[in-house]
Design a protein around this nucleic acid. Structure first.
Lengths: 211, 211
DNA sequence: TCTGCCATGTAACAAGTTACATGATTGA
DNA sequence: TCAATCATGTAACTTGTTACATGGCAGA
């Protein structure tokens, strides 16, 4: 799939491996990421397959670079792939995987993980919002654009923004639920203590919310 | 990370490779997925490392299975990993990658992709909601539970639900935006036609919305 | 008899990560 | 002089996917 991601970018403009790498994972192409160690060999293979052609571009001040451009065959492949229905992807999120077993760590640690992750997603949201503002500045009103490239850029970007907002809200919600849980279990632990039985759940350590 | 996902499940209950495989990607553990061809060798390696121990369980009716249980060392590793702060993950979504270049296909095809994906996510949401209902049935009111395992289950599940809802909303939103875009560009194309200039953008083919 | 579930494995391949390696120019 | 940016590559390793392979039992 990296091949298609590359073709998408080269369709807009010929680029070097270095320039491709910079675009992936930042500046608009937030939803795809690749290392240079993947990109360079991939470009070679794509050239062998006739999907792209390269030419050396020499600058006086800078190292010579190899700039790749899409071929008609490459464009054909790209279009064929675009109309294929993608399968739904399996979600794989390390943070959620951890949260699933947060009963094994202290409430403090769990809360710390959640707030930390909330911050990370807030930071990324800021980057996205900044990008959207830049898009808006360059194209007056996004809701009025007639440029299909800009239009679909904005659609894809909006997905990234929605995802981050959702994630942040989930972190906040989980923290609120946790506080409720703690006051509930603290209450029942106290009740049990009064009865003389010990409670060994680890969801303690965080100040409980007001009753 | 597969190792940790396995440890999380084994901490709850000893399981065979086959049972682990069934749990990943379905029934609660929606946020992690693995093939049996990964799981079996992984379990072997984990046993070598002393993170799990296996025992053969023979049934009279069924094939003998190898059931794995977590060791104290495995539990220690798991806890250590749970408190590590995970890095924020790069988003990688094939559908969004495609949408980014939908200017290269017809509006009909683009709309078809979006509605198809919306359906897929609606189906998955249904599965999640069903699971939540089952959880609620077994544990009366989730908002009242004092079982930390059930509690964090519900927190993780809620993330999956939010994600699907967000995705569905994005699909709907994108389709609505596209309709607006089409009526806008149809209008400007007509205007240009009246001037005698040709327009070669491919965002046509779908009936435009009322002006 | 045939499908589906239980149960476990290997092998080949594709994709992704991390580290090693080089070397020029530009600005602080 | 030192860090950063430009620019490209390889190698070793880890992960993940797909296909191949086997075999018993249960129920339609």
């Amino acid at each position: 799939m990296l091949a298609f991601a590359i073709l998408e970018l080269l369709h807009r403009k010929p680029l070097s491996g270095y320039e491709l790498k910079k675009r992936f994972g930042g500046s608009i192409v937030f939803f795809w990421k690749a290392n240079h160690s993947q990109i360079y060999p991939q470009l070679r293979r794509m050239e062998e397959d006739g999907l792209v052609v390269s030419s050396r571009v020499t600058h006086q001040w800078r190292p010579t670079k190899r700039v790749y451009a899409i071929t008609p065959k490459g464009e054909q492949m790209l279009r064929a792939w675009l109309v294929e229905k993608p399968k739904i992807q399996a979600v794989k999120d390390e943070m959620i995987l951890k949260a699933f077993a947060f009963n094994l760590i202290s409430a403090d640690e769990a809360a710390s993980q959640l707030t930390h992750h909330q911050k990370l997603h807030e930071q990324r949201l800021d980057v996205y919002l900044k990008t959207r503002r830049q898009l808006e500045q360059r194209h007056r009103d996004l809701a009025e654009t007639t440029d299909p490239i800009v239009f679909w850029n904005a659609i894809a970007l909006e997905h990234c923004i929605s995802f981050e907002r959702m994630y942040i809200e989930w972190c906040k919600w989980a923290l609120a639920r946790q506080n409720e849980f703690l006051s509930r279990t603290a209450a029942s632990a106290n009740a049990k203590k009064a009865e003389g039985s010990a409670s060994d759940n680890r969801m303690t350590g965080l100040g409980s919310a007001e009753p």
